[in-house]
Design a protein around this nucleic acid. Structure first.
Lengths: 156, 156
DNA sequence: CTCTTTGCAAATTTTTTGCATGCGC
DNA sequence: GCGCATGCAAAAAATTTGCAAAGAG
């Protein structure tokens, strides 16, 4: 039962304002639903799933739909106002057990290997062990791969 | 179009032997299906999805089923013979944009934050940029959280 | 010969999409 | 008022499960 820290309301207000200005800058409408969904994610430190966000937003807006939550979470991610933990889409597997990281293209989903010197992983490892026994380390970079940025078609 | 490096057959043979001994050690039967599925993942550097593995294994064993592939990939992961890129199960979101890592419990799926000093991320960042424009860094530790290891019920 | 593993099919779970109505700008 | 955003329902995609038959030890 993790104790849930609440983001202080002052900072939250500030982030909400930024969210709204970002929406306007991109020509997206500031709706109650978007505001509540953003607040739900920004205020929590529980790494909620889409379903979790849906339930929390329901307490404020009794009839939001789950698909609006999905759509909004996706657009918030595109606006870089939240992070998605893990990969998008289907699971991928890797039989290479050497310590290495992944570069994942946000557009095409391709996964590229990134090798690094093990010693650079030591510091966060120590803190990670405070949460339990670490069995696997996975460092992921998300971005746009060269292939996708040269084929300059489609959204951002 | 990524060029696909093939794991040298000598190393592959060695890994296959290890896979078989691991199976026996755990009382799992060494079947053609398991062997081919393991080989498919171990020999490729393409981070295949379950479907990809399925298609490749089909070339050898014309009637493996997709569910066998799923079951085997899961057991190979439990044997720590392969890695799963990304999280298991549903997607989780994080509104905290400060640079930090995640400790993900392999048993209950809970996600814990792990903060670190940004400077320790510099080295792999340089290599990551060789694949494209990095927009997000995500460091994940997978393991068993204290909560799950104290509640010592169930598998492994 | 026993008991795990498989293949099939069906079920679940998670996420996405089409379309008419509603609401921010 | 115009057009994007929403809600509903239905579809799609990904993964899991029950069960009888097959095969490893």
């Amino acid at each position: 039962m993790p104790t849930i820290p609440i983001v202080e309301s002052e900072e939250l207000t500030q982030r909400l304002a930024f969210f709204e200005s970002e929406c306007r800058r991109r020509g997206l409408r500031v709706t109650e639903q978007r505001r509540e969904i953003f607040k739900a994610v920004a205020a929590s430190h529980t790494h909620p799933s889409a379903e979790d966000v849906f339930e929390q937003v329901r307490e404020k807006l009794a009839n939001v739909s789950l698909d609006t939550v999905y759509r909004t979470l996706t657009s918030l991610e595109e606006m870089e106002l939240l992070l998605r933990v893990g990969t998008t889409g289907k699971e991928r597997f890797d039989g290479d057990l050497r310590p290495h990281a992944h570069f994942i293209c946000a557009k095409c989903g391709e996964v590229y290997d990134v090798f690094y010197d093990k010693k650079y992983m030591m510091l966060p490892l120590r803190e990670a062990f405070s949460h339990g026994e670490v069995r696997q380390i996975s460092l992921q970079y998300k971005g746009i791969c060269h292939q996708c940025s040269s084929a300059h078609e489609g959204k951002s």
